[in-house]
Design a protein around this nucleic acid. Structure first.
Lengths: 148, 148
DNA sequence: ATCTGAAGCTTTAGTAACTATAGCTTTGGA
DNA sequence: TCCAAAGCTATAGTTACTAAAGCTTCAGAT
């Protein structure tokens, strides 16, 4: 058996972290909140991971990168653990999340416009303003953006 | 003196909250973290606000709505308290924040694309997939998006 | 003057998703 | 055998609030 193949079976937490790009502390945290099942331990009580764990953690990381909440990931994992059953729920979660993301984008765009206006009014010169940014913040009247 | 004019001087916290759209608890929180100066108190130890406080709180709210961090707002308030001095700093904060916002928008757009792809692959039918969403999350290989 | 319900008070804990620290033990190669 | 790197647990800190418990004050009606 090669060293690599052995690593596949008994990775310590640091190797798993490096391989998945998830920090050691975060891995322990995921275990604590029940996303990642507790792995075997070495004689000295250190965690030893296998390929299953690596795959599951990759799933989690990917979902987190896509902005899914930990709670939703728990559901998605449960669904992926029971194959064949309805993916309706997975679909619903994804669609809801997509909507959230679109919403967030829209809100940020409106902020962007407003900030652009504010930040360019005062170019940062010493004498030019006193101070347009501060005034813009103080006086809501100039503000174009709708509901807060 | 009208009732309204009197309210301007001795608003209780609830009136200030209603007037500014900031929750009572949040107002107390802003006082605690030093954004809002401690107001006078009634004989029975209740907070009594005046117009100054209302203005300052409006400033804070507006800045928060624009997504400025509390820490940056503290700086902006300090700048607005010492008029005439350099607005360079205010400008720098705004520009940095604008960049952050743009960055966030860009990242969310890429998420949006990816989620769109994932969510539409499986339309939620019972038999159609098993399950494309789950598989997409498990298999990073299909993923178009760049760095995580 | 008294009653009462709404509003206010402080303190503490909870939220999301980690991150960091302290103080200790284990591991694995020279 | 030695030792530095890596791992362990438990606890606290982060951001910007929000909520709850258990009390006190306020202001209008009686």
């Amino acid at each position: 058996m090669t060293a690599l193949a052995k690593l596949e079976r008994v990775m310590p937490i640091g190797a798993l972290a490096e391989r998945t790009g998830v920090k050691v502390e975060t891995i322990r945290y995921y275990e604590q909140v029940g996303l990642l099942p507790p792995p075997e331990r070495s004689e000295g009580n250190q965690r030893r991971y296998g390929r299953r764990h690596a795959e599951r953690l990759a799933f989690i990381k990917h979902a987190r990168d896509l902005g899914f909440a930990v709670d939703n990931i728990r559901t998605l994992l449960r669904l992926s653990d029971t194959p064949g059953i309805a993916c309706d729920e997975a679909h619903a979660i994804s669609v809801a999340h997509l909507e959230e993301v679109r919403d967030k984008i829209a809100r940020l765009r409106s902020l962007e416009k407003e900030l652009e206006r504010i930040a360019t009014t005062c170019s940062g010169g010493v004498a030019a303003c006193d101070c347009a940014i501060i005034e813009a913040l103080a006086d809501h009247g100039q503000c174009s953006h709708a509901h807060h």
